[in-house]
C-alpha cells in the first residue's frame, strides 16, 4: 500500500515533467519524483517496530542487530539527497540563465533547436 503511494508520487513527478510547459514547474516535478524515490528507498529498509540503527553504550551487538532497521538504505538516501541537491542547484542556475536570455520561463517559446 505504502509502496503504491511512493510510486504514485513518482508518477506525479513524471507527469509534471512530461506535461508542464513552465521550466520551474519541470524542476519542481523532478524534485517531487526524487522525493518519491527516496521514500521508496527508506521503505525498503524499514522494519515494523524497529529502532534507529545507532548503538547505545551497553547494548549487546546481537540484540541490537535483531531490532534495528536496515541502515544501508538510509545511507543511500543521504547520498541521493546530496546528488539531488547538486542537480537541483544546477537546474535552478540554468533556469535563471534561460530567463536572462529568453525573458520567459515557457519552454514552448524556447525554440532555437529543433530536436
Amino acid at each position: 500500500m505504502i509502496y503504491a503511494l511512493c510510486l504514485m508520487l513518482i508518477a506525479v513527478g513524471l507527469y509534471g515533467v512530461v506535461v508542464k510547459k513552465n521550466v520551474v514547474k519541470i524542476v519542481i516535478s523532478l524534485a517531487i519524483m526524487e522525493y518519491g524515490i527516496n521514500l521508496l528507498l527508506i521503505l525498503v529498509g524499514y522494519r515494523a517496530g524497529g529502532h534507529a540503527p545507532i548503538m547505545e553504550p551497553g547494548a549487546s551487538p546481537a540484540e541490537f542487530a535483531a531490532g534495528a532497521v536496515d541502515p544501508l538504505p538510509q545511507a543511500l538516501v543521504l547520498t541521493s539527497i546530496v546528488i539531488g541537491l547538486g542537480v537541483l542547484a544546477m537546474m535552478v542556475a540554468i533556469c535563471i540563465r534561460l530567463y536572462e536570455r529568453y525573458g520567459t520561463f515557457d519552454i514552448t517559446e524556447m525554440r532555437r533547436l529543433r530536436g
Partner: peptide
C-alpha cells in the same frame, strides 16, 4: 565541504537573481 559549498550555492544564485 558541505558547509561552504551550500553557502556558495545560495550566494551565487542570489547574485544572479539581483541581476535579473
Amino acid at each position: 565541504k558541505v558547509g561552504t559549498s551550500l553557502f556558495m550555492v545560495l550566494a551565487i544564485l542570489s547574485a544572479v537573481h539581483v541581476a535579473v
